[in-house]
Amino acid sequence: MTSYRLNRLFNPKSGRALDVAIDHGFFGEPTFLKGIESIDNAVSALIAAGPDAIQLTVGQARVLQSVPGKQKPALVLRTDIANVYGVPLDDHLYSHHFPDAVEEAVRLDAVCVVANLIQLPGRPEIREANIQSIMALRKECVRYNMPLMVEPLVMQENSVNGAYMVDGDTRKIVSLVRQARELGADLIKADPTSNVEDYHLVIEAAGDLPVLVRGGGGSISDRALLERTVGVLDQGAKGLVYGRNIVQHRDPVGITKAMMAILHDGSSVDDALLLIAGE
């Protein structure tokens, strides 16, 4: 029955979804706030662009859900908070979930909840905390027929820039995605592999679970981002969860429309680029 809610996430024509994540203020990192200084303005702009879903936190979800009408994007609710993104890192790292997160998701009419499964070099206690959260959330998700999206994140050693950055190692990503599946995820939000041509291995590890590809941060050209998107979709990904790639873009509405054209209409990269201002 969890699929009933997911019917509002995935496009009926393409079977794919674009979830725009603007839950970054939750993590307490100042650089994450660019483009979402005003959640009201960001949500309004995204509603106009028309993605399939917007990913928000318990404290911000009402901004989307108070908008009248049935055509607005669906709500994906972030349930956990961690401090692994700061520069420099805090001496003490943590990860916690809201104990009543699933009940909140029901009250807020979310289509699913999302929680991290983070692998940090030398910090197994964070992964353990995530596993504890996932098991607790899954118990409530089953009770309320709420889909659970698990976000496996494999991080590099933090000595690179003082914070943990995404590690695109295919072998590590596949292993963590498989663990997310074993823990009872209903859908997976996973990083792209460094070699995009390897992504079918991630899809294989997820089995029959839909995989939505995480955008992450970093500077990347519009063409490169769209080409990577086409690459992972061609190998079986069912959608995207892009955040800073969209909200920190010079034309958030245009890049959203470009993504939607590729996802749902099968547009080419060249045609999608025409939807972005300045291209």
Rank of each mutant, 00 (worst) to 15 (best):
K34D: 08
L93W: 02
V58N: 11
Q156P: 06
A115H: 04
Q60V: 04
V102M: 03
D40G: 07
M155A: 10
V113L: 06
R127S: 01
I54H: 04
L120A: 13
I81R: 09
G86L: 05
L120H: 00
P88C: 14
L108C: 05
P99Q: 02
T57P: 02
V106Y: 02
V142G: 05
P124N: 03
C141V: 07
N130L: 04
L93N: 05
C112V: 09
Q65F: 03
N145H: 11
A110Q: 06
E37F: 08
C141P: 08
I81P: 02
F98I: 12
N130D: 08
A53Y: 00
A53E: 06
I126L: 09
Y85P: 08
I131P: 01
Q65V: 10
D91N: 15
I54Q: 00
A48V: 05
L153F: 10
A42N: 03
G122P: 09
P147G: 04
L64D: 03
A105S: 11
P121A: 02
R127T: 03
V154I: 13
Q60A: 15
N83V: 12
E157H: 15
V43L: 03
K70I: 14
P124A: 05
L137F: 06
M155T: 08
Q65E: 11
E128D: 09
I134W: 00
N158I: 10
P152D: 05
Y144L: 15
T57W: 00
R143W: 04
L148Q: 00
G162F: 04
A49C: 12
V63T: 13
S44A: 14
D100L: 10
I81C: 09
I39A: 05
G162A: 09
V142Q: 10
A45K: 15
K34E: 13
K34V: 11
V76E: 00
F32A: 10
L93P: 06
I54G: 01
V67K: 12
Y94N: 15
P121M: 12
D109Y: 03
V84N: 04
Q156Y: 08
S44W: 01
Q71A: 09
S159H: 09
D100P: 02
P68D: 07
Q55F: 08
Q119D: 11
V114T: 08
P121V: 14
L153V: 11
A129H: 00
L93R: 09
V102T: 05
P121Y: 06
G28Y: 02
L64S: 04
V87A: 13
M149T: 03
V84M: 03
N130R: 01
P121K: 09
V150W: 01
I131F: 00
V76G: 07
R138K: 14
F32E: 07
V63L: 08
A61W: 00
